[in-house]
Design a binder for these strands. Structure first.
Length: 474
RNA sequence: GGCCCGUUCGUCUAUCGGUUAGGACACCAGGUUUUCAACCUGGGAAGAGGGGUUCGACUCCCCUACGGGCUGCCA
């Protein structure tokens, strides 16, 4: 059996990504979104987006916007409108009341101070610090006229089993689970209640999320049971760690997805890398999104946390840049420029870059690297050599360039002819091709790292090439 | 503290009781080469430790160590 029909009944798959808008889109969150998207799309299902903004203190519209931008960049499209969890608060409260009516929940009048006192005492005595409310079985007649929260009346005996598509069967003793708060004293729902209600109402069939929620799944299962709702297929995926194996944090460098865009990684490479991080399909390493959709399955998800490896990311990005068509590449490079707050391309640069793309795309791993190698076509005369290029333009080299120029003037402008011309000069001088290519590269690009000198001449054309040669030789 | 999860080359991983434990990235050496990238050849590199179960364990069970998570009127 596959994980998709673990619960027996085949339902159209519905997944969701449910981030809380309290900051940027975390790289780990992005992968969670990717897995949900891949699974839904691969199964011909639906992928929903829900913003978990019930924490009014920390939620911001800016963070929501950042999340949407991140998903958009990664190419993860969701179905329908993004749902605001906060706006569904009345529905959540309604379910809390329903649980009350069913005897699956109760009003708890304990104050924060009382709860804290309880925990301190428990800690001191070495008992469980799970709060045991005195109101759990209180007679409603004794209820004071005071603020209260609605707590889940969790079973005290027995155990709750979470059937997880990734983690396997995980059993929790019910006495380890507390009577979680479902509705706060101000009448707003807690996350624990809201997720369940929303996932149920939205018809979510597969909950794929970080394994920091594995414990929560047990308590949420109780809500499903209390309401008589079908429990979704759980899939708790391991978190992503930093290169040192510790929980990913800012000291590891980039943790926000947008930073990766600003660093110039192509979205396709990012998707490929993220998909491969914690999920595998045999020995396949390099693949398109279409293949990933086709192959993606919950069974292929690993159980151990994975570490970020920038070298591998770069390698995959390089491969994707090489196979992306020129127009799409240009488009993405312009988006990168904007994301990195770099000046946009001029019309002339856009044209030049397009004509040079064929000799740039398979020698760059990131957009900044590609742009650096494209400098020869991006820059205008006079070409200002960088330090290394300036060193390559010593008097002897300039003499060589001066000698080469007439040959270039008469050569037909094809790669073969250009190579022949350069070879002829090399032979006449009794030097290797490298002795000519170095200065030539410096004169044409002002750089020492570029595409082939012949490709550059082809892209630049005769007039521009000769002009640059004369600039450098002169 | 309690509960839960995890642990195969440096990294990502394959393996789903029987393999010389495979691949990729990275690294090292050599080759090719006009730079970079790419490419070719070769190399080093792994089952956390200890007990079981079994004819046979990386694979199953237990313990320990280490890492992570939860234990909130945060999500």
């Amino acid at each position: 059996m596959t994980s998709s029909d673990r619960d027996g009944a085949r339902r159209p798959v519905v997944t969701r990504f449910a981030p809380s808008p309290t900051g940027y889109l975390h790289i780990g969150g992005a992968r969670t979104a990717l897995f949900n998207w891949l699974y839904a799309r691969g199964q011909g299902g639906t992928f929903l987006l829900r913003i978990e903004d019930t924490d009014r203190e920390r939620s911001t519209p800016e963070a929501t916007a950042a999340i949407l931008r991140g998903l958009d960049w990664l190419g993860l499209d969701w179905d329908g409108e993004a749902v605001s969890q906060f706006e569904r608060r009345d529905r959540h409260a309604e379910v809390a009341r329903e649980m009350l009516a069913r005897g699956a929940a109760y009003k708890c009048f304990s104050t924060q101070d009382e709860i804290e006192a309880f925990r301190e005492a428990a800690r001191a005595e070495g008992r469980s610090t799970l709060f045991q409310s005195p109101w759990r079985d209180a007679d409603p007649a004794t209820h004071p006229d005071a603020p209260y929260v609605i707590r889940m009346k969790a079973p005290r005996d027995g155990e709750t089993v979470v059937e997880d598509a990734v983690q396997g069967t995980v059993t929790f003793r019910n006495d380890q689970l507390d009577d979680m708060v479902c509705l706060r004293s101000d009448g707003t729902p807690t996350y624990m209640l809201a997720v369940v209600v929303d996932d149920h109402d939205m018809g979510v069939t597969h909950v794929i999320r970080g394994d920091d929620h594995l414990n929560n799944a047990a308590r949420q299962t109780m809500v499903y049971h209390a309401m008589g709702w079908t429990v979704p297929v759980w899939a708790h995926i391991p978190l992503i760690h930093g290169p040192d194996g510790k929980k990913l944090s800012k000291r590891h460098g980039a943790v926000g997805l947008e930073e990766y865009q600003a660093m110039g990684y192509p979205a396709a490479g990012m998707r490929n890398y993220l998909a491969r991080l914690g999920w595998s399909h045999g020995d396949d390493e390099f693949f398109t999104s279409a293949q990933a959709m086709d192959w993606f399955d919950l069974d292929g998800i690993g159980r151990a946390p994975a570490r970020l490896d920038f070298k591998k990311l770069e390698n995959l990005c390089g491969q994707h840049i090489a196979v992306t068509d020129d127009a799409a590449l240009l488009h993405e490079i312009e988006a990168y420029l904007a994301a990195a707050a770099r000046p946009p391309l001029t019309a002339a640069q856009r044209t030049g870059l397009t004509s040079a793309m064929y000799c740039l795309k398979d020698r760059a791993k990131t957009f900044p690297e590609l742009l650096e190698k494209a400098e020869f076509v991006l820059a205008n005369r006079p070409i200002v050599p960088d330090e290394a290029a300036a060193r390559a333009l010593d008097p002897v080299s300039r003499g060589i360039l001066a000698e080469l120029t007439p040959h270039m003037q008469s050569a037909s402008w094809s790669k073969d002819a250009l190579e022949a011309a350069v070879a002829a000069v090399a032979q006449a001088r009794g030097i290797g091709l490298g002795k000519i290519a170095g200065p030539l590269r410096a004169a044409l690009a002002g750089r020492t790292v570029t595409p082939s000198v012949f490709d550059m001449m082809l892209v630049l054309g005769r007039d521009e090439t000769l002009a640059r040669l004369s600039d450098a030789a002169g």
